[in-house]
Simulated scan of single mutants.
Amino acid sequence: MDGTLFGRYRYAGMLFDDRQYSAAATELAELVTEEPDNTAIRLLLARAYYHSAQLTRAEAELREVLQRNPADAYAHLMLGRVLQRQSRHDEAASSLRLAAAMSGE
């Protein structure tokens, strides 16, 4: 594994692609600590948390992404899905509506 930020991000992406979501989340959480403003890392971390059923953590990362970039339609969509999985359907509906409006669907 390449020790650069990009190399470590690629490695985490490979773990994610191999459906090793918990391992990917561990790698990505370390990267977020080093690069807290990097929303690409945060989004992949949120996805890894989502797929490993760490929904509270996924929600926190997505809310952080949206605080930094409220116009991120994909983050709104993901937040809606996370909230749905937590049976918070009313909250999910508003995020899903925003995502649909932003993406033109």
Rank of each mutant, 00 (worst) to 15 (best):
F6P: 02
H89Y: 14
L43A: 00
E61Y: 02
A23L: 15
E64Q: 14
T33K: 15
F16Q: 02
R19S: 07
R57I: 01
A101R: 13
A46K: 01
Q67R: 14
L77E: 06
M14V: 12
G7H: 10
R19N: 07
Y49F: 07
R42E: 00
A24I: 04
L96K: 06
A101I: 08
S103A: 12
T26A: 06
A25R: 00
A29Y: 13
A73M: 02
Y50K: 02
V65T: 06
P70C: 05
E61C: 02
E64K: 12
L77W: 04
R88L: 15
Y49G: 00
A99R: 01
E34Q: 14
E59V: 03
Q67D: 08
L62S: 01
L77P: 00
E27S: 11
L43V: 11
L77G: 01
A53H: 08
Y9E: 11
A12I: 11
L44C: 03
L83T: 03
T33V: 13
T26E: 14
E35S: 11
T39Q: 05
L77F: 10
N38C: 12
E35N: 09
V65G: 01
L98G: 02
T33F: 13
H51S: 03
E30P: 04
S103L: 03
Y9C: 01
V32R: 13
H76R: 04
H51E: 07
L44E: 00
S94Y: 09
L5Q: 15
R42A: 02
T56A: 10
Q86E: 13
Y21R: 05
Y9N: 04
A53I: 06
T56F: 11
Y9H: 07
L83C: 02
R81H: 10
E34V: 03
L45P: 03
T33N: 12
M102F: 12
L98Q: 12
L31V: 13
R97W: 06
H51P: 00
Q20A: 09
S87R: 09
A92I: 10
R81S: 08
S103D: 11
V32Q: 08
A12S: 08
R63F: 04
A75Y: 09
L55E: 07
A75S: 09
L43E: 00
A48D: 05
Y21Q: 04
Y49K: 03
A12G: 07
R10N: 13
Q86C: 03
D72P: 02
V32D: 08
A58H: 07
E59Y: 01
L5S: 15
R81Y: 13
M14N: 06
M102G: 03
M102S: 04
R42K: 12
A60S: 11
A71W: 12
N38S: 09
F16S: 04
A46N: 03
T56G: 09
L66N: 06
A53T: 08
H51C: 02
A12M: 02
M102K: 05
R57D: 14
R68V: 02
G80K: 01
V32W: 14
D72A: 02
M14C: 01
L43Y: 03
H76S: 00
A46W: 00
N38R: 15
L15I: 08
L15F: 05
G80I: 06
Y11E: 15
R81E: 13
A60Q: 14
L96P: 05
Q67Y: 03
E27C: 06
G7A: 11
R63V: 09
A73W: 08
R63Q: 14
S52H: 03
T26V: 14
Y74G: 00
A24P: 04
S94P: 01
L28P: 09
H89S: 15
F6I: 12
